[in-house]
């Protein structure tokens, strides 16, 4: 089935940004991700859906090695970013996370000014030599996150003083400030009202023209609205992965169908 939006706005060249092969994740004895292989396309929004505990967030966190911070977590298999193994010993996780940014469920701005929140990444990665450079990056990032107009007159105010939706867009601005190639979003709208949700979704559509976005969401409708590719996880398995239009009208696997239609899976 052709997804109308897909044909219309697809920017992708069908090139895999991420290639995961036979990925296993264990939390101690718990086998959380079983044999997952997936190609995540460049300049595409990919949604991970599935019931709680299905492994979608775990898998998302593998993509920028956030699981490294969990002692009992063990990742096996290959995850390649542009053909290079991100779990290779030579790879610096901090550098990796500049390339693969992340936005979390709860807005978590630093207890700093709006300006410093956005400037933090570019500063530690030495992306700006002068104050003027930094100003430019901050403005560009806030504009990309559709927050500039609301924030430009209060850049020195604390980021935590913004509304929930604004804070989440601030976190997105912070994530895009380091010019990532992939943006991972773990339930980015679950704490937001419908207007702020729409703003974030509009933003996702815009970000996709420059890089890949991978979003974990519990809202099936959100997955349908924002993504071109959808992956359904269940009990640690990647059950089905395909064009979003196809998944939502005619899924191949009965487990996918049960889940997206709201039946007991």
């Amino acid at each position: 089935m052709n997804d109308m939006r897909f044909v219309e706005t697809r920017v992708t060249t069908n090139e895999a940004k991420f290639t995961a092969k036979d990925v296993q994740v264990y939390y101690g004895d718990n086998h959380a991700i079983k044999d997952v292989s997936i190609d995540i396309e460049d300049k595409t929004v990919t949604a991970f859906i599935g019931p709680s505990g299905c492994g979608k967030s775990t898998f998302l966190r593998c993509l920028n090695r956030m699981n490294d911070t969990i002692d009992i977590c063990r990742v096996e298999g290959d995850i390649l970013l542009d053909g290079e193994d991100i779990y290779d010993k030579k790879v610096d996780p901090v550098q990796l996370r500049a390339r693969v940014g992340m936005v979390f469920q709860k807005p978590n701005p630093f207890p700093k000014s709006i300006y410093d929140n956005v400037a933090y990444g570019p500063r530690i990665h030495g992306m700006a030599r002068t104050r003027a450079d930094l100003d430019e990056i901050v403005e560009k990032s806030l504009r990309r996150a559709a927050l500039w107009d609301e924030a430009k007159d209060r850049l020195n105010a604390p980021g935590t003083g913004l509304s929930g939706g604004q804070q989440q867009r601030l976190c997105i601005a912070r994530a895009v400030a380091t010019e990532p190639e992939v943006l991972l979003m773990d339930e980015p709208c679950s704490a937001l009202d419908p207007i702020a949700t729409s703003q974030v979704e509009e933003l996702i559509a815009d970000l996709r023209t420059r890089f890949s976005v991978v979003i974990v969401t519990h809202s099936m409708q959100q997955a349908a609205r924002v993504s071109q590719k959808t992956a359904f996880f269940h009990l640690g398995d990647l059950v089905e992965y395909g064009d979003t239009g196809h998944i939502f009208t005619n899924p191949e696997d009965p487990r996918t169908e049960s889940y997206i239609t709201g039946r007991i899976g």
């Binding site: 939502f248 009208t249 005619n250 996918t256 169908e257 997206i260 239609t261």
Partner: peptide, 9 residues
Amino acid sequence: RAPTAVDLR
């Protein structure tokens, strides 16, 4: 209800 898949059909 925002039906999907077989429900939509």
